[in-house]
């Protein structure tokens, strides 16, 4: 039965096969609109609607904070943007030309979307420097990497990034041996060397000290402008210190959007947060 179904889906007359449709060009175009655009996106897990008619637009160069109670769908939203989760319906565009829903995770990464995960995930058996080498932007093909050597320029970028993330002394250390906060930093560093146009940063300051938080805030604000940055964070002090525009997610859709003050005085937001 399932074979027959497979054949039917493959042979549907109202669509062309993915192999004959031309490959999308992965060139970012933001001249006419936002860098990231989500429209009426829906995702459900076993009947539970994690994302519910979500609409979101991020402008080029913007620093956007996204807040919302646990389970609001913040991480799921990032999963959709980066190709990890396929939505049931809706549209997701990167710039005006790149249809994210038709691309795989590596294609999306190559197109210029970098992501830092909620639970810090680094390559644990590799050293700090090797983690940065692996994340480095550039040719990522199999045959190329067999003979790839770090260019002077790339080595400089690694050194510079090690400085930025404060792990210079630890460059040769196995990254599995780093503290939680250091792993957070390393992952931010991996994001930097990837040179993405859009950075999705999921809970960057969890497990960081106050000084580290301040440095993260400084780093993220300095990135905005040249890059677009989307930060998901629970720590309100941190959000206030960087936020220009804040979006509140609740039950998979946007509850409110505006400046931090607007949002905090919004009765619906107050209700959601106090109602917890």
């Amino acid at each position: 039965m399932s074979v027959l179904e497979n054949v039917r889906t493959t042979m549907r007359r109202d669509q062309t096969w993915s192999i004959v449709t031309p490959k999308q060009k992965l060139e970012l175009n933001v001249t006419t609109g936002p860098i990231l655009y989500l429209e009426d996106v829906n995702v459900s897990f076993d009947g539970f609607k994690a994302i519910n008619n979500l609409n979101l637009a991020i402008d080029a160069g913007e620093l956007r904070c996204i807040i919302g109670p646990n389970g609001a769908g913040k991480t799921t939203m990032m999963d959709i943007i980066t190709g990890k989760t396929q939505p049931d319906s809706g549209r997701a565009y990167f710039g005006s030309d790149i249809d994210l829903l038709r691309l795989s995770e590596p294609e999306i990464a190559t197109a210029g979307i970098g992501r830092k995960f909620q639970k810090p995930t680094v390559f644990e058996t590799h050293t700090v420097a090797e983690n940065l080498e692996l994340a480095m932007h550039g040719n990522k093909q199999v045959w190329y990497s067999l003979t790839a050597k770090l260019s002077g320029e790339q080595q400089d970028l690694i050194d510079e990034t090690l400085h930025t993330i404060g792990l210079v002394e630890h460059y040769g250390k196995t990254s599995g041996a780093l503290s939680h906060g250091q792993k957070q930093w390393l992952e931010i560093g991996m994001l930097l060397v990837q040179k993405p146009h859009l950075l999705l940063v999921d809970e960057p300051v969890a497990g960081m000290t106050h000084q580290e938080m301040d440095r993260t805030a400084e780093l993220l604000t300095s990135l905005a402008g040249k890059h677009s940055v989307v930060v998901v964070e629970h720590d309100m002090d941190f959000v206030r210190s960087i936020a220009r525009r804040v979006t509140v997610l609740h039950q998979g859709s946007v509850l409110a959007e505006g400046s931090m003050d607007d949002v905090q005085n919004n009765p619906k937001v107050v209700e959601v947060y106090l109602g917890e």
Binding site: P106, T110, V122, E124, K140, M190, Q194
Partner: peptide, 19 residues
């Protein structure tokens, strides 16, 4: 090194752009 990265964290490897 990419091979080992795939062994240890396959999906993370995808998100930095490796097929």
């Amino acid at each position: 090194r990419i091979t080992v990265a795939i062994r240890d964290a396959e999906s993370r490897t995808r998100f930095v752009g490796y097929r």
